[in-house]
């Protein structure tokens, strides 16, 4: 008889507990989602070929930057601007990568209001870039899904985007995250 009573009794409790449990579950799920940083957007372009783009050179340089330039070897594509304070932070480290000849770094000089601003900034702080494309009206930046500067993409030999780093490249970010990826892509 105890058996016979247990089942309807527990079922009767379940029917009241279930909506509350569902609500708490959904609330917890959404609460965790709200706690995430909305600026950490997952890039939709990981493992996609670099978008078709062709940027003209900045003033004083001979070559611009096109999608074809990103094929053949593992490279970095760094989005920067003279107006961008965080770019100034990572710049000395990019110069070090350049002088140590670690990996080719290509630049997208993003949204300079003045055509000379980018070249002047590079003259003052040094120029670590192999090629630079001038992107005053965000054509390439939007194609790359850029939301702010600096952003850096790691592109493999086939011209496929393999990683996106948002924010300045610090020595810690480089040795901890980016350098291992570059090394792995070179062995592929």
């Amino acid at each position: 008889m105890a058996q016979a009573l247990a089942s309807p009794a527990s079922r009767s409790r379940l029917i009241y507990v279930l909506p509350v449990a569902l609500f708490l579950g959904l609330a917890a799920y959404f609460w965790i989602g709200l706690g995430k940083n909305p600026h950490d957007l997952p890039s939709t372009l990981i493992d996609q070929p670099v978008p078709a783009f062709a940027l003209p050179p900045i003033a004083g340089r001979e070559h611009g930057l096109t999608a074809a330039d990103l094929r053949g070897q593992v490279s970095l594509v760094n989005v920067f601007g003279s107006w961008c304070a965080a770019c100034r932070i990572e710049h000395p480290f990019l110069m070090r990568l350049k002088s140590d000849n670690v990996v080719p770094i290509h630049g997208i000089n993003w949204r300079e209001k003045d055509r000379d601003a980018g070249p002047q900034w590079l003259k003052r702080h040094g120029d670590p870039y192999t090629r630079i494309g001038d992107d005053p009206d965000s054509r390439a930046a939007i194609a790359f899904g850029v939301t702010g500067a600096p952003e850096t993409f790691i592109v493999d030999r086939q011209g496929t985007i393999r990683y996106k780093h948002v924010g300045p490249i610090t020595p810690e970010v480089w040795t901890g995250t980016l350098a291992p990826i570059v090394a792995r892509l070179r062995t592929e």
Binding site: I15, Y16, L18, P19, L22, F23, L26, Y29, F30
Partner: peptide, 17 residues
Amino acid sequence: YALWFGPLVILAAGAVA
């Protein structure tokens, strides 16, 4: 689906209860 239907499912479960 959880976003679109979650509240409706909870409402239905509550109505049944």
